[in-house]
């Protein structure tokens, strides 16, 4: 179903047809489908924002907010920024769009604890985006995976939003990390990836052969 829709929508976005506002209702339905079925199509969503930009009369705050929420699920990619560049500053200050902007700022600066507290206080901000929390957890794991060699279990739990131990363990398993007996989670041997580099110039004979030949 989702694949069929993706293909249909792709034809609507080809060439000049992309700017045809008659496609808007189909594209908006498609956004809704992404929300319900936990699928994602950045290009189609940007197409919607583009049509709003060209036809301000058709602008819908809720759809825009949903698109932005979906963009957050694709972090660490910068989809959110791409969307933001197409939304008027005045529109960005309106609710619920403004709320999503605040969430984005927390996530982009890795203030994960603040993010989960906000989500707990106002559960409605997720706007029913299916699988939203887990998408964010994936992003958290991405950041943890690049930052830490070992991280205390409690700290990881906090970053993942205070979920039960069993769930934290399944995230640990998913990424192939190891929970040690000392309560630390071993991520990976970062020393292999992150080490001091000494760059010295290597001049190959080939790269200077020509110039040497011409100056004999």
């Amino acid at each position: 179903m989702a694949d069929a829709m993706r293909a249909t929508v792709a034809t609507l976005l080809k060439g000049i047809d992309r700017y045809n506002p008659e496609n808007l209702s189909t594209l908006e339905r498609y956004v809704d489908m992404q929300i319900r079925e936990n699928t994602y199509d950045l290009e189609a969503n940007l197409g919607v924002l583009k049509l709003y930009q060209f036809n301000p009369g058709y602008y819908q705050t809720n759809v825009t907010a949903q698109i932005l929420m979906k963009a957050l699920t694709n972090l660490p990619h910068t989809d959110f920024t791409l969307c933001k560049c197409l939304i008027d500053t005045v529109r960005q200050a309106e609710e619920p769009v403004f709320n999503v902007m605040k969430l984005a700022d927390m996530l982009e600066t890795c203030r994960f604890q603040d993010f989960w507290i906000t989500l707990q206080k106002e559960p409605d901000v997720t706007m029913g985006v299916k699988g939203f929390e887990d998408s964010i957890r994936k992003f958290v794991c991405h950041v943890v995976g690049t930052t830490y060699q070992t991280i205390p279990f409690e700290h990881l739990t906090e970053l993942l939003g205070g979920i039960p131990d069993s769930q934290v363990k399944s995230w640990i398993n998913k990424y192939g990390w190891q929970l040690g007996s000392d309560g630390n989670v071993y991520i990976t041997n970062q020393e292999d990836n992150i080490k001091t580099k000494n760059i010295t110039e290597k001049i190959t004979f080939d790269s200077v052969a020509a110039i040497m030949a011409s100056h004999r």
Binding site: T146, T147, Y148, Q149, T150, I151, P152, N184, Q190, E191, I194, K195, T196, K197, N198, I199, T200, E201, I203, S207, V208
Partner: peptide, 20 residues
């Protein structure tokens, strides 16, 4: 850099002067 427990381990890039 990376964090190992409470320690930050840093990797710098040192570049020798290029003359070619």
């Amino acid at each position: 850099f990376y964090i190992d427990k409470d320690m930050v381990h840093i990797a710098d890039t040192k570049v020798a002067r290029r003359y070619g």
